[in-house]
Design a protein around this nucleic acid. Structure first.
Lengths: 189, 189
DNA sequence: GGGAATAATCGACATAGCGTCGATTATTGT
DNA sequence: ACAATAATCGACGCTATGTCGATTATTCCC
C-alpha cells in the first residue's frame, strides 16, 4: 500500500475514491455502500479498487479520521475550561451538532453502533472524550466548584454517551439546550 | 408418548430454530449468525429454514419480542411510581442491568445500533420507554415535586438513551448508581 | 387403519458481494 | 528512451442470501 511521493495519478484516484464515498454517504447508509459503487464512482474496475484500499471500511476510516479531528477541536473549548460556563458548553455542543448534521449517516454507526469495522475509531474518539471529560469533572471537584458524586469517569462516560445519543438523532437548538442542562445538573447538582 | 404435546412437528422445529439462535448468541454476535447455522442447529436444511422464517432477522425479532416484555415489566416499577424514590429507581435499573447482561449481544445492535432489521423493535421499545418516562416527569412537575427545565419529552429522551448506553457496556452496581444519580439530578435538580 | 389434504423437506438455481491472482498496460524518474 | 514500478483488469473461488419445483412425511377425519 506504499506508492511514490508527489501528486501522482494514483494519489488522484485514491482521493477520488474517498470523495465518492463522501458523496454516496449523502444518500445511502454506510452499510449499503459497496466496493462496486466506490470503484465505479472513481472510474476504475472493482478489482482495481483493491490496489488502493484493503476494503470499504478502510475508505470510511479515512473519512472518519478527518471528522475526528474536527470533533476534538470542537470539544476543546469546553473541556479545557473551568467552572460552570454555560456559554462555552453550548458553543461546543453547537459545533458537535453541526458535525452530526453533516456526517450523521457515517457517525451514527461509527460512534453508536458496535460494528467491528469501526471499533478502532470508536474507542479512540469515545475514550478520548471520556477521559478528558472525567479530568474536567475531577478538576471542578478538587477545587470545590462541584459536589462529590459518582466516580468521575463513570459520570463522564454517562454524559458523553448521552450527548452522542441525543445529538445523533436531533441537532436542534432545543436538543442542545437539553444536553446542556442535563450535563450541568449532573455535574454541579 | 410425546403426542400429548399440542405442538405439531412444525411448531417444535420453529421453537428449535429460536432456541438455536438464543444459544448461538451466547458465543457469537448477531451479525455473524447465518441461516446455515440456524438451520443446522435445528436439524434441517438451509432451504427448509425458509419454510419457518423469512430471514435471520425474523428469528431475532421473535427473540426480541420475548425480551421486550421483560423490559417493560422491569421499568413499570419506577415509571408508575411518583416522587423521588431512590429504591424503586435502583431496583428497576437493576433488572434492566440483568437483561443487558443476559441478552446484551442482541440488545446492543437492536437498541443502540441503527440496523434497518431492528427498526421496528427499536422504535417500539425506545419510544414506549421515552413516552412513559416523559409522562412520569410531567407528573412530578405538575405536582411541584420537580422544578421546570427542558421539555419533558426531550429530557426523557436524553435520560433513556443515557441509561441504555451506560448499561449496554457496564452492568455493575457502580454503573447503576451512576445512572440513578444522573437521572435524579437531571429531574429534581 | 387408510387415504386425501397439507405440512415439511430438500437440491438445484440464481444473485450479490467480497477478496485474490496473474497477466497486461500505462506512468514516471532519471 | 526505457527500465522500474505503478496501475488496471478479467477471471476465479468463496460465502451468504433467497426462490422454485419436486418430493416425502404428518395429520386429520371417516
Amino acid at each position: 500500500m506504499n506508492r511514490r511521493r508527489g501528486m501522482t495519478k494514483g494519489d488522484r484516484r485514491e482521493r477520488a475514491i474517498v470523495e465518492t464515498a463522501k458523496e454516496l454517504l449523502q444518500s445511502v447508509p454506510p452499510g449499503q455502500i459497496t466496493v462496486d459503487r466506490l470503484a465505479a464512482g472513481a472510474g476504475i474496475s472493482r478489482s482495481s479498487f483493491y490496489f488502493y484500499f484493503d476494503s470499504k471500511s478502510a475508505v470510511l476510516d479515512a473519512l472518519l479520521d478527518e471528522i475526528a479531528q474536527e470533533m476534538e477541536e470542537a470539544a476543546r473549548g469546553w473541556l479545557d475550561g473551568a467552572g460552570d460556563d454555560p456559554a462555552a458548553l453550548r458553543k461546543a455542543l453547537g459545533v458537535s451538532a453541526r458535525l452530526w448534521r453533516e456526517h450523521g449517516s457515517l457517525l451514527r454507526p461509527a460512534l453508536l453502533g458496535e460494528d467491528e469495522e469501526f471499533a478502532g475509531f470508536r474507542s479512540r474518539v469515545v475514550e478520548g472524550y471520556i477521559g478528558q471529560a472525567a479530568a474536567r469533572i475531577g478538576r471542578e471537584r478538587a477545587e470545590g466548584r462541584a459536589p462529590e458524586g459518582p466516580p468521575q469517569d463513570g459520570l463522564a462516560r454517562a454524559l458523553v454517551r448521552m450527548k452522542f445519543a441525543v445529538l445523533a438523532e436531533d441537532q436542534s437548538a432545543q436538543a442542545i439546550e437539553t444536553c446542556a442542562v442535563v450535563i450541568t445538573r449532573a455535574i454541579y447538582a
